[in-house]
């Protein structure tokens, strides 16, 4: 029971907190914290000597997910003049219960998905799966575009967990590429949110889908 397990438990708890959280600002901060915590995973999961690449990846993902993303998202909140409530389709309690169900499903999938390479922890695959599932759930169960960005970030964190823990030997270039994609994604979404808001006075995707012409 080392630091990796500790990090993975924290990731599970932050996901559950996100599912139950009713405040936008708190959700952004939780996602930032999750990104920071996960930044330490490549440092702990490596098997050979600590190389500059690991440190660079950890530092890069930490800075982008823990610093740049919250800044961009808070800026979007300010410019779109959003209220502080999350506005879900699915209530917080139901979301939390769905999260517990997803955790169970993730553990079941973890047993059904044998990974050919050595995994750093037996909790790693289930936790990565759980992050992906709860990210998807956050995307479909929240009304506003900003929460969907947060769900997307959680989903990406799941992919990152999987990559950092299972594919220890993957080229770090792939990780950096994914990180860059996500960065551009969040950047573009921030701008889009601002523009949607200026055009329609809200970023409620529920009403967006009913637009005609």
């Amino acid at each position: 029971m080392g630091w990796i397990e500790f990090i993975l438990v924290l990731v599970v708890l932050t996901n559950l907190k996100l599912l139950a959280s009713s405040r936008l600002g708190a959700s952004i901060r939780v996602v930032a914290r999750q990104g920071l915590i996960l930044g330490a995973l490549p440092l702990l999961a490596h098997q050979d000597a600590l190389s500059l690449q690991h440190v660079a990846l950890a530092a890069g993902s930490g800075v982008i997910k823990g610093g740049v993303f919250p800044w961009l998202l808070f800026r979007a909140v300010r410019e779109a003049e959003l209220t502080r409530e999350v506005e879900p389709y699915v209530g917080y309690l139901t979301s939390l219960l769905a999260g517990v169900g997803a955790l169970g499903a993730a553990f079941w999938m973890g047993t059904r998905l044998p990974v050919p390479v050595e995994v750093v922890s037996r909790w790693l695959v289930p936790v990565a799966m759980f992050s992906i599932l709860s990210g998807l759930f956050l995307i479909i169960s929240r009304k506003r575009a900003l929460n969907q960005v947060l769900g997307f970030l959680v989903l990406e964190n799941g992919v990152f967990t999987f990559g950092a823990g299972v594919l220890v030997e993957t080229p770090q270039l792939v990780e950096v590429g994914v990180l860059l994609d996500v960065f551009v994604g969040v950047f573009v979404m921030g701008i889009i949110i601002f523009h949607i808001n200026r055009e329609f006075d809200h970023i409620d995707t529920d009403q967006l889908s009913a637009l005609k012409d």
Partner: peptide, 20 residues
């Protein structure tokens, strides 16, 4: 209050799953 208690249940369920 229900959120707090369902949260407690979720923590217990998480512990149960992690303990498998």
């Amino acid at each position: 209050v229900p959120q707090l208690l369902v949260g407690a249940g979720a923590l217990a369920a998480t512990a149960f799953l992690l303990g498998l």
